[in-house]
């Protein structure tokens, strides 16, 4: 196996006495869909934020393709191939859906310090953006303002915006949260198609989706990884079952 895309070594974050990430080691090779699960308040989003650079760890190391990125800014990590979606939908609401993705293409396609020619007439940006929209099934909504599309569509849009960044790794924070049944099935199908092309870290509460999609699952409880392995072994892990005691999705 080649070097891992993402590596966390002894990652730790504490707010005063409160330890929210407690010595997390994680290794995600190319093409793996790695799901992070855990009860509410286990520190999943905090961990995602440290990986993406939105929060800084108190100790430990984050490596992207072998390079230490622990102290790089969000933007610098993004330029090195880290793309993420947020737990709460995060799009550019005044721009159209197409413009949102085109702006994402632009981030990887030449300088953005161009002041004169209209970005909307750049076929290079629009064509790639349209391609990505087709991939996530949003091509019909290309000209709708992104602030006005449905919640599930926003989640798909975020994934399209992440795809055109040509990422080495996708960080998806609850892509199905708050979506209806139909929409979450669409997103599951989409993730299945993306699987294998990128390393993916997926935080998700929908256990059905997690066990259907994940190659490996890590279980986070009180900031600690208590188990990590293929979905079948996680399902049978006694410690995990205890942590999820009473959670019907596990029953």
């Amino acid at each position: 196996m080649s070097e891992p895309v993402l590596e966390l070594i002894g990652l730790r974050k504490a707010y005063g006495a409160l330890v929210v990430t407690d010595g997390v080691d994680l290794c995600v090779p190319h093409g793996e869909l790695h799901a992070l699960i855990g009860p509410n308040g286990a520190g999943k989003t905090t961990l995602m934020n440290q990986i993406s650079g939105n929060a800084s760890p108190s100790a430990g190391e984050i490596r992207l393709l072998g390079e230490t990125v622990t102290h790089l800014s969000v933007a610098a990590r993004a330029r090195r191939g880290m793309a993420r979606s947020f737990q709460i939908s995060s799009v550019l609401p005044e721009f159209t859906v197409l413009e949102n993705v085109a702006l994402s293409v632009q981030a990887r396609s030449g300088s953005s310090y161009r002041f004169w020619s209209a970005a909307s007439r750049e076929a290079r940006l629009n064509d790639r953006a349209m391609g990505a929209l087709a991939e996530v099934g949003l091509q019909d909504r290309a000209y709708a303002p992104a602030g006005q599309i449905s919640h599930g569509e926003k989640r798909a849009l975020e994934i399209a915006m992440a795809l055109v960044l040509e990422p080495k790794i996708l960080l998806l924070d609850e892509p199905m949260a708050g979506t209806g049944h139909e929409e979450s099935e669409r997103i599951t199908a989409l993730l299945r198609r993306l699987k294998g092309r990128y390393a993916i870290v997926l935080v998700e509460h929908d256990m059905q989706a997690v066990f259907a999609l994940a190659d490996r699952v890590s279980v986070l409880v009180y900031g600690k990884v208590i188990a990590s392995g293929p979905p079948t072994s996680i399902r049978e892990n006694a410690e995990v079952r205890a942590a999820y005691l009473g959670d019907e999705e596990f029953a």
């Binding site: 933007a75 947020f86 550019l92 721009f95 981030a107 960044l165």
Partner: peptide, 28 residues
């Protein structure tokens, strides 16, 4: 011309959602 250019789009994007723009790799 400036506001419709690549630069103009980035500038407006940063106003609308700075966090998202930084996640795309734009340094505000």
């Amino acid at each position: 011309r400036l506001v419709a250019s690549r630069f103009g789009r980035v500038l407006q994007g940063l106003r609308q959602n700075r966090q998202r723009m930084e996640a795309m790799g734009y340094s505000a």
